[in-house]
Design a protein around this nucleic acid. Structure first.
Lengths: 146, 146
DNA sequence: GTAAAATGCTATAGTCAATAGCTATTGGAG
DNA sequence: CTCCAATAGCTATTGACTATAGCATTTTAC
């Protein structure tokens, strides 16, 4: 295989290859989400809200691993874009809910993600394909049973 | 499997899982390289220079996909750290070479990378393990023969 | 009622990558 | 040789993302 005789001395290292691959994929996904005026993190928030529409900022951040401080400007942007609304739960916490516009945008985003997912998997040779996600899971969440 | 019933609506999407996994790995690798005062990109440069010690800034950047403009401050930092030296080739281009310190640092980095690589692969269940790198290659460099 | 924790937020700084633009050198065409 | 395009290295700037510290309010526990 050609790749192993490349001048790039890092091509043997899974960590490096993982980084380069992820970067390439993220760039491509970002490009596909750009027409929807969504960044990847915002898209993830929309997807979460599509499953359960009464999440708080803290709950979203916990699942997506985004810190509270960084959720604030992101949600502000999404609110200004008319995608979400805030409903007070109690004096300190707010439920984040999808607006009508947000629900529609979420459907578009979902379609985009599905298409992207299918295309990505199709690029992996069949004999490796179904091993890919389990391998990623094992690295991402080592405690998960497999 | 538990992961598939998680509140994270993105866990089915390879792009997202790839991103999260890469981020987790990069954080861990960065931590391991920190004692060597090396960032991941700098480490990659050292590894390249270990294979061929007369590369120019532009050549390195081309392989590692780092733009000329972003190579400059990086090389400056490495030069100040005493890892590399610049030798003029002609009036406009400079060969980047490892110093003695840089050569020693590269050996340490290489050992760190090897240990990390082995540990990463060991985390992947055996039946998925040898499919991982080929799958990444297929995504990263779709044109590569497989 | 008071102390501790939780929630949302601002402000700030650092990393990383992308773009535009500058200077100087090289190399080829006239 | 002169002119001009391409190359090489660099600065400065911007934008996205992340991490930290700190503040105000509210809830919860004792």
């Amino acid at each position: 295989m050609d790749g192993y005789e490349n001048p790039d001395a890092m091509e043997h290292f899974p960590g490096y290859v993982l980084r380069r691959t992820a970067h390439a994929m993220m760039a491509e996904l970002a490009q596909r989400l750009a027409p929807l005026d969504l960044r990847i993190s915002e898209c993830a928030i929309l997807m979460m809200l599509g499953q359960r529409g009464d999440l708080t900022s803290a709950e979203i951040g916990k699942v997506l691993d985004i810190q509270r401080a960084n959720m604030a400007p992101m949600l502000k942007r999404m609110e200004l874009a008319g995608l979400i609304a805030r409903k007070p739960i109690d004096g300190r916490s707010m439920a984040i809910v999808l607006t009508k516009v947000g629900t529609a945008r979420r459907a578009l985003a979902h379609a985009t993600l599905n298409a992207f997912e299918a295309e990505l998997m199709s690029r992996i040779p069949a004999r490796h394909r179904h091993h890919f996600m389990p391998a990623l899971y094992a690295l991402w969440k080592p405690a998960e049973p497999d």
